[in-house]
Design a protein around this nucleic acid. Sequence first.
DNA 1: GTCTATACAGTGATAGAC
DNA 2: GTCTATCACTGTATAGAC
Lengths: 209, 209
Amino acid sequence: MDGDQPSSRDRLIIAAQRLFARHGYNGVSVRDIAAEAGMNSASIGYYFGGKENLLAEVYRRSAAPMKAERRRRLAELDEAGITDLPALIDAFVRPALLADESGSFLRLRTILSAENSDIFSSLTAENFDDTSAEFIDRLCRALPNRARTEIMWRFHFMLGTLYYSATGPQRIATISDGQCDPHDVDRLLASLVPFLVAGFSAQEKDVLS
Amino acid sequence: MDGDQPSSRDRLIIAAQRLFARHGYNGVSVRDIAAEAGMNSASIGYYFGGKENLLAEVYRRSAAPMKAERRRRLAELDEAGITDLPALIDAFVRPALLADESGSFLRLRTILSAENSDIFSSLTAENFDDTSAEFIDRLCRALPNRARTEIMWRFHFMLGTLYYSATGPQRIATISDGQCDPHDVDRLLASLVPFLVAGFSAQEKDVLS
DNA sequence: GTCTATACAGTGATAGAC
DNA sequence: GTCTATCACTGTATAGAC
């Protein structure tokens, strides 16, 4: 049956997942992870070949439920025959902020994107290239009068709002004297989705290049 | 006269500024910085009390010209009597991407925001709270029918697009098969400013809270 | 196969010699 | 004011126990 103890390998992944989410990548040592899993630090080298490969394993595990949730929402939209922009953007953005508790996976990815950009690139490409392409295709269909290149730029900007929301929360709280609480994901989404919808719908400025 | 050699302290700051911009904060050791400045690594402890305080010094030095450029552009607008949203947003966004070569200071700040969020918070507050407040006030005046809270949320989203553009460049290049080059700052701005203008102008969704 | 003790070169910080 | 020496820490690699 499935009631088996998790394997040593799995225990390491779970411990790493928890610690990376809380303290980022560089903020956690292999010794911390091993201790959290109740194992020797050298076991990470044995099972994964190094800290970086363990990160890749954690990334894959965390990405899976988020991708599944996005796919589920898209299927729901298809079933209901909905193709409008707000629903589409919501289906992309909401799972990123809600898939794991308080967007800890999103936070980890933001840290990686800034600090270890080469690792981040390959992991993102490996895990999200298909989903991203799917969404860009749908965005182009929902916005037939916008150039595909322009939509990709705006997709890029959307990622920025998402990533930053996962890490820079105290800034908006400071500026607003506590009126804006970035941990209130529902409130955040209520502002973010209309903002993005308007941005994606914007008239194109004439560009030379 | 002013033709003096830069002091040992200044040599360290300049070396750190160059290395932090290229390799981020954690990617540079105090030994690297000291070697670049032609000094002993312990000198950083002596002059600054530690790597973190040296970072604060670098931050202040880098923020100054960017803030000056923003102020200069705002003064220009005031002189010409321009108060429209696109010009205002451009005056905020452009100096962040152009003040130093290839936005290396913006990149450093993004890394800090993700990895060392407590340091980032205090440095940002120390250096940018006044500028941010000034811009939010102007945004509110340019958008008199939008709630101030909502404008602060959108300001938060704008920071996200900026920060991410400074670090996650290769992602958009991959997705677009090279059609979008995030290092082309002029092209980036040509898409970003209209996107933000539309986002800031968006109709408010009815929010419960 | 699984796991661990241990050594190695690197980090930031710091006490104390000069 | 500057440097040497040293400390506790990091990720990694490996020899060897079981």
